[in-house]
Design a protein around this nucleic acid. Structure first.
Lengths: 244, 244
DNA sequence: CAGTGGTCTAGACCACATG
DNA sequence: ATGTGGTCTAGACCACTGT
């Protein structure tokens, strides 16, 4: 169907399996294959793209390593969903000191559309002054307010989102309603003192040390798509980081 | 040389390439292949183990993903060194807010051998009361004191280490002098208020929010080998975490 | 049983580094 | 020119899931 050139020696050599990966990713990206659905078998993909099964398999190996697909022996290969537990915990690292990892609940305390601040414009690569959607929420773990969070999104990518009933799992919303899949993110962590606003929301004294997480999240096409600043109390929680 | 059984169907099936990986890892672990050295070519390994080159390659793929070896097209495969920049930054995530990542300098301020605290014994899986080596140091980035660090090691694994001249890069020391290779680690992060001791070392006011990093590091054989608590000022630095 | 992904093999050729 | 790792192919068989 979509034959790939094997050789492109001049200055840029892209392996066949990576070209194949890009084609398969674009089919997820453009909605041809929806989250949770099975994609064609390795043999079919190989035939479609005019490559050998081993090469198609290597493309899928990469996509599995990137958490874009999930494979089940004997069943097939499926587009990853953001509500699979392991995908959620890919991004959510705050954990109770005792007990199991847990998905937080959310209460939105602010939703509005405004011109992008210089910081927001820079991080999201927007023209300064273009409109952004700003969400504020308080998240709880084990029934205890743990996180005060400000989320900034390009309004052009999420039109009229401010009129929706916002769910707990935003990344699943981005995908389902706006066709935006968050693939990876970068977080910068600092320790800061609680100011009046967050102290009130979290029920701690002003000046209490909080963990500030400054996250930029990137969609499948590699563009920065969400800016999120989270202030977390860490008296009974911690941020878990595995270095491999 | 060391033939592997292909089939072991009864209740535990271990792929050939993983059995091969384990054999290769043990050769790094026992010092047969030293850090920085080239290991035999894929063809030689395949012949040695009585497997096909593709299977040997897959074993090496895994080891490369685990940062145990580094491959260079046309040159060969080499045992990873902890002084390779990318291996250092695998574990050291504190970064100046402006500018490039940088390796910190160290000044040791305390070295002694003592009975393990209950916490230390639990984390390092030691009998309570067995002896541990405890190191304290202050680390600087861009010439500015940034981290106060307490490192706890099983004394039995690092005999007479307290008499050595301790270098900046401890993981390279562990490997070179004691044959212990640190392969991965887990970090728990919290925001805490500076107490008198760390405030003095870092030149900040008591009560300043600091980032506390509680790291347990595991050696090649999977056993907890080092416990490290780092208190970091994050006014001009941040902890970088990539979520993929 | 058929169909899927997972493992393993065997060999050809390409890209890169070194002598 | 040689040897290394990297890519690609083609096919066999194994393990698992559903019908």
């Amino acid at each position: 169907m979509a034959r790939i050139e094997a050789r492109n020696n001049a200055l840029g050599f892209r392996p066949l399996y990576r070209q194949a990966r890009d084609i398969l990713v674009s089919r997820i990206n453009d909605g041809t294959w929806q989250a949770g659905q099975a994609i064609p078998s390795e043999m079919e993909i190989a035939a479609d793209l005019g490559i050998s099964p081993g090469t198609a398999r290597k493309a899928l190996d990469e996509m599995e390593a990137e958490n874009l697909v999930v494979r089940h022996q004997g069943r097939g290969t499926f587009v990853a969903r953001h509500d699979d537990a392991r995908i959620i915990f890919q991004f959510f690292r705050l954990t109770p000191d005792t007990g199991e990892r847990e998905f937080p609940s959310s209460k939105f305390v602010g939703i509005d559309v405004r011109p992008a601040s210089p910081d927001a414009a820079k991080i999201l690569k927007l023209r300064s002054g273009s409109r952004v959607l700003q969400l504020e929420r308080v998240r709880s773990l084990s029934g205890k307010a743990a996180i005060v969070e400000t989320i900034t999104l390009p309004h052009a990518l999420f039109p009229a989102a401010e009129k929706l009933d916002l769910p707990n799992n935003l990344y699943e919303l981005y995908r389902a309603k706006f066709g935006v899949t968050i693939a990876r993110s970068t977080e910068k962590l600092k320790a800061v003192a609680a100011k009046r606003r967050e102290a009130k929301h979290l029920g701690v004294a002003i000046g209490t040390p909080l963990l500030a997480i400054d996250r930029t999240a990137y969609s499948l096409d590699g563009r920065p798509t969400e800016w999120r600043v989270s202030l977390c109390r860490t008296d009974t929680f911690h941020y878990l980081s595995d270095l491999k």
